[in-house]
C-alpha cells in the first residue's frame, strides 16, 4: 500500500513537472541552441547503435521466420513479416529501449548530480525554473528525434532482413520479391501507428528520466540509485504502454 501511494505521488509529481514545462512552451524559440544540443544528444549519438542493433534484429527475424515459415511453404511472405514487425513493434520498442539506456540514463545522471550539488537550487534562487531550461528542450527534442530514429531503425531492419533472405541458402528469397511483398502488405496506417508509439515511448522515457533526476535527494550514492530507478521504470513503462497502445490501435 505504501509503495502504491509513493507511486501515485511520483506520478502526480511527474504530471506537475510536465504541466510546469508546458507553461514555458513559448520560451522554446529562444532556447533553440539548447534544443539543437538535445537533438544532437538524443538523435545523433543514438543513431549508430540504433542502426547496428536494428539491422541485426531484422536479420535475426528474417533468419528465424525463414526457418519456421518454410515448414508452411510461406517463406515468400518473409518480407511482410519482417517489415510489419519492424514498423509496428520492434522498431519503436527497440528505439525507445535504446533511448532509455543511452540518453535517459545520461539525462538522469546529469540532472541528479545537478540536484545533489545544488545547481538546481541555484537555478531556483535565480528565478530560472529548472523545467524551462532542463526539461522542456529535452522533451521537444525527443518528440522531433524519435520518428527520425524509428524510420532509421525500420529501414535498417528491413535491409538486414533482405540481406539474410537473399544470401541464406535455406531461405533464398531475392530482395526484389522481399520488398514487393513488404510493400504489398504495408499500409500508411502501419507506419503512422509505429511512429505514434515511438513518440509516446520517447516522451514517457524522457519525462521519467527528468523527473527521477530532479527528484534525487541526498548525496552521490543516490545518483546511482536514481539511475537504476529511471532505467527500470522506463523499461517497465515502455513494455506496459506497448501492450495498451496496441490494444487501442489494432
Amino acid at each position: 500500500m505504501k509503495q502504491f501511494i509513493a507511486f501515485c505521488e511520483s506520478f502526480g509529481s511527474a504530471l506537475c513537472m510536465l504541466g510546469r514545462s508546458a507553461c514555458y512552451i513559448n520560451t522554446l524559440p529562444r532556447q533553440f541552441p539548447r534544443f539543437i544540443e538535445q537533438c544532437y544528444m538524443i538523435g545523433y549519438t543514438t543513431m549508430p547503435i540504433v542502426t547496428i542493433l536494428c539491422f541485426f534484429i531484422g536479420s535475426a527475424l528474417a533468419q528465424q521466420s525463414g526457418y519456421s515459415m518454410e515448414n508452411f511453404g510461406a517463406k515468400q511472405f518473409i518480407g511482410a513479416l519482417v517489415g510489419l514487425s519492424m514498423v509496428r513493434e520492434l522498431g519503436p520498442v527497440m528505439v525507445a529501449i535504446l533511448v532509455a539506456g543511452r540518453v535517459g540514463s545520461a539525462i538522469t545522471a546529469e540532472l541528479a548530480s545537478m540536484k545533489v550539488y545544488q545547481e538546481v537550487d541555484a537555478l531556483v534562487t535565480m528565478d530560472i525554473p529548472p523545467e524551462r531550461i532542463l526539461v522542456l528542450p529535452r522533451l521537444a527534442a525527443v518528440l522531433v528525434m524519435m520518428p527520425v530514429l524509428t524510420v532509421i531503425a525500420n529501414l535498417c531492419g528491413w535491409y538486414g532482413g533482405a540481406l539474410v533472405c537473399q544470401y541464406t541458402k535455406s531461405i533464398s528469397v531475392d530482395s526484389q520479391s522481399y520488398f514487393a511483398v513488404l510493400k504489398r502488405f504495408m499500409t500508411a496506417r502501419d507506419i503512422s501507428d509505429g511512429l505514434l508509439k515511438a513518440e509516446v515511448f520517447g516522451f514517457v522515457v524522457i519525462t521519467i528520466c527528468c523527473h527521477i533526476g530532479l527528484s534525487t535527494r541526498g548525496g552521490p550514492r543516490e545518483i546511482g540509485a536514481s539511475l537504476t530507478k529511471a532505467i527500470v521504470t522506463s523499461l517497465i513503462f515502455i513494455l506496459v504502454l506497448d501492450y495498451f497502445i496496441n490494444e487501442i490501435l489494432i
Binding site: 550539488y117 541555484a122 530560472i128
Partner: peptide, 28 residues
C-alpha cells in the same frame, strides 16, 4: 532580486565561468 552564494559554490559544471555568470541576464 535575491542572490544566494552556496557553500560549495553550486556553479553549473557544464558551463564555462563566463556562461555561469551570463546565465541570469540571458534568461531574464
Amino acid at each position: 532580486r535575491l542572490a544566494f552564494v552556496f557553500q560549495a559554490g553550486a556553479l553549473f559544471n557544464s558551463m564555462t565561468v563566463y556562461d555561469n555568470l551570463a546565465l541570469y541576464p540571458r534568461e531574464h
